[in-house]
Design a protein around this nucleic acid. Sequence first.
DNA 1: GCTGAAAAGCTCTGCTA
DNA 2: TAGCAGAGCTTTTCAGC
Lengths: 158, 158
Amino acid sequence: MTLQLDDIDLKILALLQQHGRLANQELASLVGLSASPCSRRVKALEEAGFIAGYATLLDPKHFDLQLTAYIQVRLEKHSQAILDAFELAMSSYDEVLECCLLTGSDADYQLKVLVCDMEAFKRFLLEKLTTQQDIAGIRSSFVLKQVKNQTAIPLPKS
Amino acid sequence: MTLQLDDIDLKILALLQQHGRLANQELASLVGLSASPCSRRVKALEEAGFIAGYATLLDPKHFDLQLTAYIQVRLEKHSQAILDAFELAMSSYDEVLECCLLTGSDADYQLKVLVCDMEAFKRFLLEKLTTQQDIAGIRSSFVLKQVKNQTAIPLPKS
DNA sequence: GCTGAAAAGCTCTGCTA
DNA sequence: TAGCAGAGCTTTTCAGC
């Protein structure tokens, strides 16, 4: 932490969240600074860990990735070794975009999976998920419509 | 579409997904091109719609955003007007990162919500979600551990 | 901590092959 | 469709406030 954010920092972060490749010069003029302090602030924000990284967002439709599924997984046993093995396996699969351990649900894990079609989904289930040890149950839901899917997190309103 | 991707394009996209602000020059050398054809390819990929945008990823922990919840929402009626109103409202809330219409679940919508703490979550439920018309039921699950949370989509392995 | 100017580096475009 | 080279722009560093 060790860095107190002011309004300008928050503006910078809000703009960068939406436009990751905004040129420093333009960013500076949008937040009302000249270029040099602006780039210094961005660097400080990176070094303090506020900025986790930069990403290019691709359009799944252009790659024939037309099926997004949420899979809820229940495990038989809950020893650390079993959880670790499951997490490690899921982390290694490219089609698993998200994997989290849940509470308040009858499932243990929820996965978000992105694949081409139902056939590829079936292969994921049969070849990658159900080959895991100690799975007690699986329930899949499919996305009919992505209403919203943003990477930007809510920031304090300055 | 109208653009057939070759191995180099896929390499470029794979690198950019992970490092959104990679300088063109370095990208070029990583994929084995010189700078100019590389920047021309990136531009073509943007214009063809493969690249949806660029984002800066922030670290939620540095902003005291410590509670991620998935909320499953069931609606009473399913007229287009009601669905539209619900989607529009959810789209307008910063703390709603994802909102999608589901099938294969007893819920209609799943939301992914990111807030500071349980208190803020309660406010979201009471002030923003349950004020919606025609909600038949809500079930919340909380994330205990984010095992994986990536923006990169799976690309053909060249 | 900001500004402004100068140096270094990067990107883009047209040209050549 | 790649590579080269020059023009233009961006970033960064440094002195001054």
